[in-house]
């Protein structure tokens, strides 16, 4: 019983890291209608900026964290400007954006292989990970911290989307980007803003993952599971992305804890196939059409 509760808390913590990734990915998807495979690159960029800034600022996590979020956000804007903007101005086919995003994901990953080397790095112990006991249950302080910070960021995002003018513009663009443009929204600025938000959230998850596991250039691969979560929740729906992430994180940890840790990824992808078979648009999604 105790281990069940522990695994569920572990799962919710992992799921909230997925949620940070999946929400950013979903946000981009809802505006441009393509799967941005370079999203993992933003996460890794955030992780490395945090790592290097920690050494520069003598382990001041607040400064390093803030610079990492801003840096990853800017790298996302740069990716959009360099690779996606020329394509989306030329054609409506999102397939080309998809392939370009795969190219960018390879470019960013190998940029960090060249700059930082391929080895695994651990962040200095700036975020407390000591265990705390509540009754007979032992949980990591870090897991609770991750969960709370994620809630704070997602609430902030929700507030931004619901209560500000730019948030309104983003919600309008999610319905129809072209019409939002016709109504006087500066579409290029709006897309940059969306990419900045996506990069920022990815950097938060990048820092968490670097603490939870270690930091290495291929860390961005974990975004695949967050994509799966976004699809299970319904592509383009932010609430769906959060719900899907929490479900998958919990399912993954329960499998690792009670069945076999090697099967955890199989369960994630199995959940994807089962969801798609019974509810192809995901739990809360809208229908999309063929792109080739």
């Amino acid at each position: 019983m105790e281990s069940l509760i522990q695994q569920i808390i572990n799962g919710l913590s992992l799921g909230s890291v997925y949620a940070l990734i999946a929400v950013g990915y979903s946000l981009v998807y809802s505006i441009l209608l393509f799967s941005n495979f370079a999203h993992g690159g933003f996460l890794v960029t955030g992780g490395y900026i945090c790592y290097y800034m920690l050494t520069l600022t003598n382990n001041n996590i607040w400064v390093a964290g803030a610079l990492s979020l801003i840096g990853a956000g800017l790298s996302a804007i740069a990716t959009e400007r360099l690779a996606y903007k020329p394509i989306r101005e030329k054609t409506n086919l999102t397939l080309y954006l998809l392939i370009a995003s795969m190219g960018m994901s390879i470019v960013i990953e190998n940029f960090w292989v060249i700059m930082a080397g391929g080895r695994f790095r651990a962040l200095p112990p700036v975020i407390p990970t000591y265990p705390i006991r509540i009754g007979s249950i032992t949980i990591s302080f870090f897991d609770i911290l991750v969960f709370l910070i994620t809630i704070a960021f997602l609430t902030g995002l929700e507030f931004f989307l619901q209560r500000t003018r730019w948030g309104l513009a983003i919600r309008a663009a999610a319905y129809d980007l072209r019409v939002a443009g016709l109504m006087g929204v500066n579409v290029n600025k709006l897309i940059s803003l969306v990419f900045f938000l996506a990069g920022l959230l990815a950097a938060v998850s990048g820092i968490f993952l670097s603490v939870r596991y270690t930091l290495y250039p291929q860390l961005g691969f974990i975004t695949i599971k967050a994509f799966v979560a976004a699809v299970v929740g319904g592509l383009g729906s932010l609430r769906g992305a959060v719900i899907g992430s929490l479900i998958l994180g919990t399912a993954e940890m329960l499998t690792a804890g009670f069945i076999s840790s090697q099967l955890r990824d199989v369960v994630v992808f199995g959940a994807l196939v089962v969801t798609l078979l019974f509810k192809p648009t995901g739990l809360l999604g809208k229908a999309i059409s063929e792109k080739v």
Binding site: F34, S35, D265, V266, G270, V273, L276, I288, S289
Partner: peptide, 17 residues
């Protein structure tokens, strides 16, 4: 039965499985 991005992401899942 899945279309577009959904089949693409399902195929990632199957490939990884």
């Amino acid at each position: 039965k899945l279309m577009g991005d959904y089949f693409a992401i399902a195929s990632i899942g199957l490939g990884e499985t």
